[in-house]
C-alpha cells in the first residue's frame, strides 16, 4: 500500500481538530489565547489541505463526505467543553502528533507534510503543555476541571496507537513514549494519570474505521452546511 494511504486519516484529524479549535473564536478567555487557538487551527487546516491535495479535490473531501467516510480519531471530534477540556484534548493530540511526525521517514508526499508540520506541532505541544502545568498546578477549581478532562478524554487515547496504513511506524514504542511524556507532564502539573481503560468497551472499531461519536454528526452538519447549500460559493 502506498504511503499516500496515510494522507486521509492524517488530513481528517487535522481538519476536524482545526474546526473544533475555530469554534473558540469569539469565546476564548482572553485575546491572546483566542489568537493562539486560531493560529493552531490554521496550522492544522494547512496540514489538512496539503494532505487532501495528494488525494483529490479538497472541497469535495472536506465538505461532501458523510460521517462514516471520515477517518479521524474520535479524540479530535470531541466537543470543546470548558477550556481545560480543550487544552487536555490538545495535549493528548499534539504530543502524539509530534512523536508520530518525528518518525515519518522517506521522501514521499506525506513525509514532506510531516517534516514541515513537525516544527509547528512542537509549538502546539508547548502551548498545551504550558497551559496544562498552569491549570493543573493552579487553583483548586482549575485543578479539578483539568483532572476531570484528563479522566474524561482518556478513553479516546488508545485509538492514537492504531497502525496507520501506508506508514511503517511501530505503534507500541510510540505508545510507550507518549505515555512517558504525558505521565511526566501530568506529574509536573500535579495531576493523576488515569488507570482506567484507554478505549471504550462498546466502541466497534473507532474513528479510523469511520465509527464516530454522537457529536461528530452535528459538527459536520455545521461545517458542511454552507458548501452543501451553496456549492462552489466564494467570496
Amino acid at each position: 500500500m502506498s504511503a499516500v494511504a496515510a494522507a486521509l486519516p492524517l488530513a481528517d484529524d487535522a481538519l476536524v481538530l482545526s474546526h473544533r479549535l475555530a469554534e473558540w473564536l469569539g469565546h476564548a478567555p482572553e485575546l491572546e489565547e483566542e489568537l493562539a487557538l486560531a493560529n493552531i487551527s490554521l496550522d492544522l487546516l494547512g496540514q489538512a489541505r496539503a494532505c487532501y491535495a495528494l488525494l483529490g479535490d479538497e472541497d469535495a473531501l472536506a465538505y461532501r463526505r458523510e460521517e462514516r467516510e471520515f477517518r479521524n480519531l474520535q479524540l479530535v471530534e470531541q466537543p470543546n467543553g470548558d477550556f481545560a477540556h480543550t487544552i487536555t484534548r490538545q495535549l493528548f493530540f499534539s504530543v502524539w502528533q509530534e512523536l508520530l511526525f518525528g518518525r515519518v521517514t522517506g521522501t514521499g508526499p506525506p513525509a514532506a507534510v510531516a517534516a514541515k508540520a513537525v516544527k509547528e506541532t512542537a509549538y502546539h505541544r508547548d502551548h498545551a503543555e504550558q497551559w496544562t502545568l498552569r491549570l493543573g498546578d493552579g487553583t483548586e477549581e482549575s485543578h479539578r476541571r483539568t483532572q476531570r478532562a484528563v479522566d474524561a478524554l482518556w478513553r479516546y487515547t488508545g485509538e492514537l496507537f492504531q497502525p496507520l496504513e501506508g506508514l511503517d511506524i511501530a505503534m507500541e514504542p510510540l505508545r510507550r513514549d507518549w505515555r512517558a511524556r504525558i505521565g511526566d507532564i501530568l506529574a509536573r502539573a500535579t495531576l493523576t494519570m488515569p488507570e482506567g481503560p484507554d478505549a471504550d468497551a462498546w466502541s466497534a472499531g473507532a474513528g479510523r474505521q469511520g465509527v464516530h461519536t454522537e457529536s461528530f454528526g452535528r459538527m459536520l452538519a455545521e461545517m458542511q452546511h454552507l458548501h452543501r447549500s451553496h456549492p462552489g460559493a466564494v467570496w
Partner: peptide, 12 residues
C-alpha cells in the same frame, strides 16, 4: 506574552 501572535509565524 503569547507564543502565537497576529500570524502563526510570530510570537507576541
Amino acid at each position: 506574552i503569547s507564543r502565537f501572535s497576529s500570524t502563526a509565524c510570530k510570537a507576541l
